[in-house]
Design a protein around this nucleic acid. Structure first.
Lengths: 151, 151
DNA sequence: TACAGTGTTATAGTTAACTATAACACTAAT
DNA sequence: ATTAGTGTTATAGTTAACTATAACACTGTA
């Protein structure tokens, strides 16, 4: 039940990446509150400070806004910001290494595009709403976080 | 000049991964000695213990053999072992996440797998050999000339 | 007001990664 | 026997990540 964390990266960063993924996937829409520090800490049996540290990065990146006593909320424009920034970062920092590895391992495109990570149907990312927004759950991601994949 | 290390992963692991890549690329052939602990430590201005730790993992994985007083040598069958193990690991652990991210960012996986990513021409990966091998340089990855020092 | 929910700060301890220095053990060649 | 090259071990210190506990500050609602 606890295989939530990947030991190849600090938890606070994985936490940050999960929220990022949720924003990109539209699970967390702009204006939505993200799950409270205490909630997440309890849910994942992690220290509140660790959660805070991850969340704080989102604030620093301008993706999330803090309202004391109320919670933290996804900023307007967050998703666009991410699509821009993360795309750039992925293409220049992550992909070259990943691609080199794929070549190195003699894997072909077909194999990769079919069998493996073909989940996530690609269709959409921004569903409907206008229901009372109640803080989404960090669990709403199957295949984890963003960034930093290597081997 | 020191853009050698990626802070998203411990050095000893990156070290290990470099050697793995060199074996897969055929830069280090079976029976070849790998660059000595001290050499690497000096070259990259890293602690010998850190290098040893990375190398030790290779020994533990059965990829490399230690001969006291002489050095560490690539085991026979190492490359095949790697092609098996690393492929497996990549497909089940890394690729799913990577692919999900690609989708998430609205990028086209197919496109990436073909044209992009600073191509490394897959022409040769397993050259047949029979030349007198002298400890390859860890730098022989990612576009780097051969040795620059002999005395 | 009291309360229960937010984010935030303070103190302090553990562990893993990395570092600096130094020495030991073994091997091939001089 | 000496030397210079290997891997290896020992001691000890720094830093970042994470942890446990506890308290503080703020906000909406009963």
């Amino acid at each position: 039940m606890d295989r939530e964390w990947n030991d190849s990266q600090p938890i606070y960063r994985q936490l940050r990446d999960r929220v990022v993924a949720m924003i990109l996937d539209g699970v967390l829409k702009e204006g939505d509150p993200l799950p409270s520090v205490r909630t997440v800490a309890a849910e994942y049996r992690v220290n509140p400070l660790t959660v805070l540290k991850g969340y704080q990065q989102l604030v620093d990146d301008g993706l999330v806004e803090t309202r004391r006593g109320m919670g933290m909320f996804v900023n307007p424009g967050a998703r666009d910001l991410l699509l821009q920034g993360e795309r750039q970062k992925f293409l220049t920092e992550d992909w070259p290494r990943i691609h080199a590895n794929i070549q190195r391992l003699g894997l072909n495109a077909e194999e990769l595009l079919n069998g493996a990570g073909a989940a996530r149907s690609s269709s959409e990312a921004a569903p409907r709403d206008s229901a009372p927004p109640k803080s989404a759950d960090l669990k709403n991601l199957e295949s984890n976080p963003l960034k930093k994949e290597e081997r």
